[in-house]
Write a protein that binds this DNA or RNA. Structure first.
Lengths: 194, 194, 194, 194
DNA sequence: AATGAATGAGATTTCATTCAT
DNA sequence: TATGAATGAAATCTCATTCAT
């Protein structure tokens, strides 16, 4: 959230809240301004366009994801623990900020604009790359099976993570994501461990 | 596509095409009618509302998915082969009809309407259930490891499938989905086989 | 209902039913045809336009009103009895066919078209004229006060009748129109009798 | 007209003018905006929906009716004089603002929406109640006959008033409403006075 | 006598954005 | 930094009516 003024941060936060509540489709300038208690034109003092707000949201998620990975990385544990921490950190983030899922999984919506879809792809790439790195470390230490490439394993782990989050959202958040995610992790661990 | 008139089928097909090209958000009555060479009100002779068109699209995918699963099911092979067929059938369907992905993965967009999101959830459920059944069969024949529940395995397999499709879409269809999907399947198979 | 084919009569009857149920504003060709189990263009085989249907309805009410007045007229009783019969006949007609009120009191809606508003005015005139004639007879027989012109008395009697019907409609037909109308008549009678 | 911004008042006034000219049915957002020299969406900065404009019009009439009755009430004269003032005030209001009649007598049109028809019924009730109160006072002072209830008398007086206004409207405002109304009042007075 | 298909005109409403103040 | 007022573009939908069959 560096490089953003206080008002910009407010706008970003309100937007995230609105996305969580009503979905990206119902994120309108009118809604944002109403929630902030200001008028619509006032928004344009802080962001040139609605696109810029969405980009700011993505950049916010990007940097917070990056920071989390950074912390995981420097935690100094074994590769498999890092994967686990990353898995659980994601679960926690989604559970705490459902908007994150609404935003990250909105490829469809961002399809319209190359910059938006590019950012979403970038965030996904960062995660996949980090995951790959952790897997590689674990594979080098013979903790994880070596007969499958780290890219494929990343895909499988992240895919499962994403799908459980999607089911959670479709179910209207009706189950405990972190608990069910923990079960899922146990299964994944069994599958990939040596 | 039973129960639909010819014109309705045309509308559904054009809509699917438009969704594939421009995303669901840009699927408008105007676009549909323009593509059919008729005026907007003419659409309303065939569908009562736009929502009904979307529901028809989902019902089309639902029945075609159901039919594909039916065929897979009665193929009379081993459980693991059925999983494989299902996996490849999905890949092929997505590769052939990119709109399918655009529609099926649009949970976000369908969030607005309970009937729509319900249908999407139903389609997902059908697939998960079929996958679970095939896995169970394979587990009973000791072809697939038994230390992980069929539900978890379904989640992992379908999650990986979905994610590779999503990456393909985000990459602007820049790689050969069926080929890369085949590689992914090999990895999954290694992971789950006994 | 002379001069109308069977199908035309059906259309008129359905239209009256629809007006009673939903108001004139929601009387559409689509609604009429749906209620008859035919298509919209079929209506145009029987009436040139929607306007003609409305005119037919008015002409129907006009002739049935005329016939009722005819019967009253030739009932051969005293003037005051005739007024009474006319008053009660109207009450009964409205109670039995709420559409009648919906149509007759729709001056606003008919304002658009001179022919329609002309017909409504004509029906009103017929009634006022008949009422005046009855009053005149009663005044000549000294049954009704002579210090007020028959036109004014008509206006007062018909006005009260219309208003009680309007209140009945606004109340969603929540009281017994004929009973309350009878009470009203008693009061009117007291006022005008010698 | 309190609680309304200047622009809102303008919209209300223009709407009333349009209703008087063309009837409620032709009161469209487009017409209103065209008359104000602005675009259609601009209207929505001032009223949330067309329904709200209609409600505003009714609330305007309601409060102006209420104020007029208030003044009549506190005029401190005899009951019969109050009835007379109320009668003439109504005539004058209708003569000056034909739209008032178009709106007030549009029960049919407002039938669609409970809030609208409720407001129309409320305005009618206010008037009937005031009239009843004045009649009661006159009856207590033996100025008006006591053998008929105040409710019935109200109905008769208001009914006559409404009908003469309706005839005036149907005749295309072709006679002097206030003059003919004054004659009518003379007759009514004769009827009800002791 | 009726239908299937379609249309022109128009209604209400939403949305991102602009501009003078 | 913010507001009041407004706009162009577009979306969904309704309605009376037409026309070929």
């Amino acid at each position: 959230m560096i490089n953003f003024t206080d008002r910009q941060k407010e706008i970003i936060e309100v937007s995230i809240k609105l996305i969580a509540e009503k979905g990206i489709q119902r994120l309108t300038i009118k809604n944002i301004s109403k929630n902030l208690g200001i008028t619509e034109p006032a928004i344009y003092r802080h962001f040139e366009s609605k696109l810029d707000i969405l980009l700011a949201i993505l950049s916010y998620f990007k940097s917070s994801t990056g920071a989390a990975l950074e912390r995981t990385h420097s935690a100094g544990r074994s590769g498999i623990e890092k994967i686990e921490i990353m898995f659980f950190t994601h679960l926690k983030q989604f559970a705490e900020k459902p908007a994150l899922a609404a935003v990250i999984f909105s490829e469809e919506i961002f399809q319209n604009d190359k910059r938006l879809s590019g950012q979403v792809a970038a965030i996904m790439k960062i995660n996949m790359k980090a995951m790959s790195t952790f897997i590689k470390q674990a594979q080098q230490n013979d903790k994880i099976r070596n007969d499958i490439t780290k890219e494929q394993l990343s895909l499988i782990i992240m895919g499962a993570l994403r799908l459980i989050v999607t089911k959670w959202r479709l179910s209207d958040y009706s189950f405990d994501l972190e608990k069910r995610g923990a079960d899922l992790w146990k299964s994944i661990k069994k599958l990939i461990e040596n």
